[in-house]
């Protein structure tokens, strides 16, 4: 179903960014656990790349235009933006 992967990745990207900023970073600075950001940062990086890849694929598939791509990638860089992205994708009835 077109768009389903993109929506799932938008949610996963939002969740890992929130976990990175609101769990791993406090753990690093308040509990002295630098490994938390190292691991969560790598995981979030992986999910973010997968999301960007899915955006490129959706563009090549004809589901998104250039403006949509920019909107989704910029949204993914903002905390909670991934949730807005997912709702926007759902509202476009992409699956």
């Amino acid at each position: 179903m077109p768009g389903r992967t993109l929506r799932r990745l938008a949610i996963a990207e939002a969740a890992t960014l929130i976990a990175l900023l609101f769990v791993a970073v406090p753990l690093k600075h308040l509990a002295g656990l630098p490994e938390s950001t190292r691991l969560m940062g790598a995981l979030h990086g992986l999910i973010f790349l997968a999301f960007c890849w899915a955006v490129v694929r959706a563009r090549a598939e004809g589901l998104l235009n250039g403006k949509d791509m920019v909107r989704l990638v910029v949204g993914a860089c903002i905390p909670f933006g991934g949730i807005v992205n997912e709702r926007w994708l759902r509202s476009r009835a992409m699956g």
């Binding site: 077109p2 790349l49 890849w53 899915a54 955006v55 490129v56 694929r57 959706a58 563009r59 090549a60 598939e61 004809g62």
Partner: peptide, 16 residues
């Protein structure tokens, strides 16, 4: 990243 982008493009077109 560029190679991943190329794959994403090829994959999307293939799907379409």
């Amino acid at each position: 990243v560029v190679l991943s982008g190329i794959h994403g493009m090829v994959s999307g077109r293939l799907r379409r």
